[in-house]
Design a protein around this nucleic acid. Structure first.
Length: 565
RNA sequence: GCGCCUGUAGCUCAGCAGGAUAGAGCAACGGACUUCUAAUCCGUAGGCCAGAGGUUCGAAUCCUCUCAGGCGCGCCA
């Protein structure tokens, strides 16, 4: 795999500056050069400031003072370096500017490299090997199987699925896992709630428990249960009937959750049942192991984990006074299981209501001898649904909430994914249902997709298969607007690295918007299919490249790249 | 009370280990289709980056404090 062009160019520039620095040192003008990597190469915001810039002069200024010399102004240092930067085919000019920046203007050579890479292996453009050798497990959503998916689940799903795609593109092996919380109070309440609804449908007079799940969906589910089993469940003792409802309800809800996810384009590699941890004895084994390692103490009849010794604010119960293990205990067992499976890195995406849980989970892993950095927890922040200009509150208890399915049916998968991913996971985003629904045409995702469709349309009109010709690309006389687009595409791999590294796909949505803007503007200004065969080829090479980058980018977000719109 | 997240244009939000004149979309206003898709383009307007200190050549960005909003602080999951 080729190194991304931008990285190579930065390295080249570092080398050139370093050579200048060494020369100046030999002449006694600057202090001794340090490491080459400390020379920072950045990208100026202003085009007038060149393609790349370095602030090395500012750093060196401090050092000329420290070295006992009289000290030089940043401008002078920059000038000393500028005069000594060796010539290079990539280099069109070096200038000093501002308070002491060193600005580099490059020839189109490096950008032609981008087009050539794109022509050679389109589907792989943007691939990097930053995560090569990593085996990452990504666990996300993991909702209780007690009701339909909600919109925060959808956000976490879009994020997790997209990150998985990024990681794979960065060379990692990735496994997506869903942890099914099919054990404990919540599912028991589900069983009880369903059982009451069932009896209600058989005509029995019932009082619905106030702690039960009151959503409509349970009535529907009870109806299905009645259709499937008839009144036969009434023969069972109540306890058994509840147990059956719990079992049956869990399975049905899980199945529909899974269906919702798959309709959203999210497919898991592995579904992991919490119950199996209890049944296999893994949970009890955790208690024993912690006991053996002197991590537990007894108080008020319960067994406590000494979490404060590992950075948590409070100690945590792993076995209650009446002998039950807690959710936390099972979760420790779950994470130990993950670790035993040989992943180099674990990532969990949790909802905002679980952030208080992070410290104790990390404390447990550390106490058991694993590095706390091995587990990374991302918080997908909350979503405020806005309807009719007002916040739309959700309540699982009252059963009036907008489900993930509702949302997707209203705005579509592509728009929903884009909306979730276009903001930082940290932002508490406002999702305006009316806006997303009514103004779909104004939605930025269509703007990006439209660029792709326009390009596809160009190639449809060509009566032959198009393959970019390296010779034509190398000999082309590029215009400024073309170079700008090429430069943007050169930063595609960088954007992916950043998005993957920071776990922030919104870097890519922003990038795609910028690229699409440049392209639409260019499209309006220039014709692609002209009488001049050479010119046509040059412009189509550019279109080919843009289309490829847009398609590759959308793929990472889990969004389709339509040929027609 | 403690912890986490957030505070940038009228609205929703970007701003990459600090960098040169703070950006985008929407909304507003004015223009552009005989031409490869007008789901597009071009232009105008819009800001005490919540506030106060500090760090330095340089702060929206880093540190401290204050203010405001959200979420969490169970022998629940």
């Amino acid at each position: 795999m080729n190194q991304p062009v931008v990285r190579e160019v930065k390295k080249k520039l570092q080398r050139l500056i370093y050579q200048a620095w060494e020369k100046a040192f030999a002449e006694g003008l600057l202090p001794q050069p340090g490491a080459r990597d400390e020379i920072m190469i950045e990208v100026p915001k202003e085009r007038a400031h060149g393609n790349f810039a370095s602030n090395i002069a500012f750093q060196l200024t401090a050092r000329t003072r420290a070295g006992g010399q009289s000290g030089r102004a940043p401008r002078d240092v920059a000038e000393i370096l500028r005069e000594r930067v060796p010539a290079h085919p990539y280099l069109a000019g070096v200038e000093t500017a501002g308070a002491g920046f060193l600005n580099f203007r490059l020839t189109p050579l490096w950008l032609q490299e981008v087009l050539l890479n794109l022509a050679e292996a389109p589907d792989d453009y943007g691939r990097i090997d930053d995560l090569k050798g990593e085996k990452i497990q990504l666990e996300f959503i993991s909702a209780n199987p007690v009701g339909p998916m909600n919109v925060v689940n959808a956000r976490a799903g879009a994020l997790g699925d997209s990150l998985a795609r990024f990681f794979v593109f960065c060379g990692a092996e990735v496994e997506k896992e869903y942890y099914v919380n099919d054990y404990g109070v919540q599912v028991t309440v589900l069983g009880e709630s369903l059982e009451v609804r069932y009896r209600e449908l058989t005509g029995e007079e019932v009082t619905f428990p106030d702690y039960g799940y009151q959503g409509e969906y349970l009535i529907d589910l009870a109806r299905e249960l009645l259709a499937e089993k008839g009144r036969s469940l009434l023969e069972l003792p109540k306890e058994e009937r509840i147990a059956f409802c719990k079992e049956w309800g869990c399975r049905r809800i899980l199945k529909s959750q899974r269906q919702d996810l798959e309709d959203f384009g999210i497919f898991y590699d592995h579904w992991f049942s919490e119950r199996t941890l209890h049944e296999s004895g893994a949970v009890d084994a955790v208690v024993q192991r912690m006991e053996k390692n002197n991590l537990l103490y007894e108080k008020d009849g319960a067994l406590w984990f000494w979490a404060t010794a590992f950075g948590d604010e409070k100690d945590r119960v792993v076995r209650t006074a009446d002998g039950r293990t807690t959710y936390f205990t099972a979760d420790i067992a779950y994470h130990l299981d993950k670790l035993a499976r040989g992943f180099t890195h674990l990532i969990n995406i949790w909802g905002p209501d679980h952030h208080g849980y992070i410290a104790r989970m990390k404390a447990a892993l550390e106490a058991l001898g694993y590095g706390r950095e091995k587990l990374e927890i991302l918080i997908a922040q909350q979503i405020n649904l806005i309807k009719d200009g007002k916040p739309y509150k959700m309540s699982k208890r009252r059963g009036e909430f907008i489900t993930m399915r509702d949302l997707l049916e209203e705005v579509g998968n592509d728009a929903a994914r884009w909306y979730f991913l276009m903001r930082s996971p940290d932002s508490h985003l406002d999702f305006d249902l009316d806006l997303a629904k009514e103004e779909t045409a104004e939605n930025p995702v269509f703007y990006v997709q439209y660029a792709h469709a326009r390009i596809a349309s160009l190639f449809r009109q060509l009566d032959r298969e198009f393959r970019p010709d390296p010779t034509v690309i190398n000999e082309a006389a590029w215009e400024d607007d073309e170079l700008e687009i090429m430069e943007k595409m050169a930063f595609f791999p960088e954007t992916i690295a950043l998005a993957a590294g920071e776990r922030e796909p919104h870097r890519l949505t922003a990038y795609l918007l910028e690229l699409a803007t440049l392209f639409h503007s260019y499209y309006n200004r220039k014709r692609f299919l002209t009488e001049d065969e050479r010119l046509t080829h040059i412009r189509l090479s550019l279109a080919f490249a843009v289309g490829t980058v847009v398609r590759n980018g959308l793929r990472l977000l889990g969004i389709t790249a339509p040929e027609k719109m």
